[in-house]
Simulated assay, not measured.
Amino acid sequence: MSKESFPLSKVYGLLEPGPVVLVTTAREGRANIMTMSWHMMMEFEPPMLACVISNGNFSFDSLKATKQCVINIPTVELSKKVVDCGNSSGRTVDKFKEFGLTPVAASSVEAPLIDECYANLECRVVDDKMVAKYNLFILEVVKAWIDPRKEHPQTIHHLGEGAFMVAGETIHLPSKMK
């Protein structure tokens, strides 16, 4: 066999499920942005996803209390701001002001959309049974927005230790799934 052992602490970089996103929450009139890459789709209709938010993050208490957030999907052009948001705390920084991002009122939740992101998913927590043990929230997308001017958005995907992959070429293969 030509393979070698791989450190278990780096496995997450092999399996990151999707693009890095910016989660917005709002509580008591204060909005926050959190960078997140630990999420996964769970269902098509209604669209449901799961995400892990550490109980040490400022956004954790807000999401737990309000049971609503927006998953904002940035493109590679926002990558520096995405990393900057992830390297600062909403406890001490207004990330919208600090990083020049524009909050836009959502239609179904109190948390704001980020205007610069190419897609925004307004979400409500529908299951919090695994929050205490795993910090895992189950969300239902109740409204989705997309910027139609961005035809081929390139998202970023976290590989760990400051490394990111940029989504690239799209290929189409025949599918019998409908």
Rank of each mutant, 00 (worst) to 15 (best):
A26P: 01
V21M: 15
R91A: 08
L49I: 02
A119E: 08
G168Q: 09
E28I: 02
H157E: 07
G86Y: 01
I33K: 04
K10Y: 10
R91Y: 11
P74D: 00
Y12T: 08
N57E: 14
A163C: 05
V125H: 00
G56F: 12
I138T: 15
P19N: 11
R91W: 12
T75G: 06
K10E: 14
L78R: 08
L15S: 10
T102D: 00
F137Q: 04
T92E: 14
F137M: 07
S59P: 08
K10N: 12
A105F: 11
E140S: 06
S79L: 11
L63N: 03
E110Y: 00
K97Y: 00
H157D: 03
T66M: 09
L113E: 02
A106M: 00
A132S: 10
C69A: 11
L139W: 02
K178T: 08
K150T: 09
L63T: 10
E77V: 03
D61I: 09
E77M: 07
R30F: 11
G90Q: 07
T24D: 04
L136T: 12
A144F: 06
P47C: 02
E140Y: 06
M40W: 04
N135V: 06
M177Q: 14
T25H: 04
S108N: 05
A106R: 01
S79Q: 13
T92V: 10
G29T: 00
K95D: 03
S2N: 12
F96L: 00
R91T: 11
F137H: 09
G160W: 02
P74M: 05
V76R: 13
Y134C: 12
Y134G: 03
W38M: 15
Y12D: 06
E77I: 06
M48K: 06
A106D: 01
H152N: 15
S108T: 11
V52Q: 12
S79T: 13
V93D: 01
V131H: 05
P112Q: 04
S108V: 01
E98W: 00
G29F: 04
I33P: 02
M165E: 12
Q68M: 03
M130C: 12
S37E: 11
Q154T: 10
Q68C: 10
M34Y: 01
F99I: 04
K64E: 13
D94S: 10
P46I: 01
S5N: 12
V126S: 05
A111M: 04
T92F: 09
F96G: 05
D84Q: 13
V104I: 03
P46A: 05
S107C: 03
I146F: 15
K80S: 12
K67Q: 14
A105P: 02
N120R: 14
N120S: 15
G162D: 07
S62N: 10
K67W: 13
L139M: 14
H39I: 08
K178I: 14
K133F: 03
V11E: 02
P7A: 11
C69Q: 00
E16P: 04
Q154Y: 10
